[in-house]
């Protein structure tokens, strides 16, 4: 019996949700395990980097990498996996677009470290100690990964073959992706393994969306009730669905929350944030700066709203000047 295809899974700057989504396959995971050999999965299996290094170049059929890339160690690991794998799949919003961790691109590294180690209410650090990359103590020398200035998407660091969007990707998409991989008939490089149609397509509330959208105010879900029957956007809550790929089954909408855009843009859009901004603001009702600004007060943090998952992969990538 020939060897089962070797699969590696790795996490970088991520929350663990993507790992969880693999477990979410439930009994289907057995099917996966029957058909592939997971040779590396730090969250679940005890393999070391040196185990990966042992493989020949491109011996691993596919590596599924989740999380954004923001440290030297992560770079080192993904480069290694790239070398050893035939196919690299950016798994999840963070690997594809930067995800939530990429919101750090709105700040400087120093600001973040200062806050976390000194200013955060929970920080107890009278000596203002910071983690250091190199540390010498008598005869021991330790090395810690260094934090980068910039959070990156996976493709900004290594060559990526496919993308599985989502925060996290739905198990349905994962299963389909695995089937595609096993079939051996691979889609063209660069394909995002999700429908190239926006979420409204599969949204259960699509029919309730009016054709005469005109915003007179914007509301935030934590302050107002959302009518569970009607299109959420039409109620004045920002829903990124129209600018976000479908494939999730409109889970958030099912849970009566607006889409926040984790599946990223369609293939025809370069910058999801700019595009949804363009769409939503065009339909504001005001005609003067004053009227318009008054309505826009309902969107206090446009970057956080429209680039929640896409900052690193956006056209500007990060805050350019401080």
């Amino acid at each position: 019996m020939p060897d089962k295809p070797k699969i590696a899974m790795y996490w970088c700057a991520s929350c663990g949700g993507c790992e969880e989504s693999v477990v979410d396959l439930a009994e289907d995971i057995l099917f996966v395990l029957d058909n592939v050999d997971i040779i590396f999965w730090p969250v679940a299996l005890d393999f070391k980097k040196s185990d990966v290094e042992k493989y020949k170049d491109v011996e691993i059929v596919a590596s599924l990498i989740n999380g954004a890339i923001r440290s030297t160690e992560q770079e080192e690991m993904v480069r290694l996996l790239r070398k050893k794998s035939k196919v690299i799949i950016a798994y999840g919003a963070c690997a594809q677009l930067g995800g939530i961790p990429a919101l750090a691109n709105e700040f400087q590294k120093e600001e973040i470290l200062r806050y976390v180690y000194e200013e955060a209410p929970s920080a107890v650090n009278p000596d203002k100690k910071r983690p250091q990359a190199q540390f010498k103590d008598d005869d021991r020398e330790t090395e810690l990964p260094e934090l980068w200035d910039t959070v990156r998407t996976l493709e900004q660091v290594i060559d990526v073959d496919y993308y599985l969007p989502g925060c996290p990707p739905s198990s349905k998409l994962l299963k389909e992706a695995v089937l595609v991989l096993l079939s051996g008939i691979l889609p063209s490089k660069g394909t995002v393994l999700a429908p190239d149609l926006a979420l409204c397509e599969e949204c259960p509330r699509k029919d309730t969306k009016p054709t005469d959208l005109s915003f007179t105010e914007f509301k935030r879900p934590n302050m107002h009730n959302i009518d569970p029957e009607k299109c959420i956007l039409s109620q004045g809550f920002i829903c990124i669905g129209p600018a976000t790929r479908s494939g999730c089954g409109a889970m958030c909408i099912e849970g009566n929350m607006p889409c926040t855009g984790c599946y990223g843009p369609t293939s025809r859009v370069k910058d999801q944030g700019a595009k949804i901004l363009s769409s939503i603001t065009s339909n504001i009702s005001g005609k003067t700066e004053k009227e318009i600004d008054a309505i826009l007060e309902g969107i206090p943090d446009p970057v956080g709203t429209f680039y929640r998952y896409g900052m690193a992969g956006s056209l500007l990538r990060k805050k350019v000047d401080f």
Partner: peptide, 20 residues
């Protein structure tokens, strides 16, 4: 008007991205 509506929010975004 549509251009203006976009611009009023977009300029805030561009500024948040550190562009004067």
């Amino acid at each position: 008007y549509k251009c203006l509506r976009r611009f009023q929010l977009f300029k805030r975004v561009v500024e948040s991205f550190g562009i004067n």
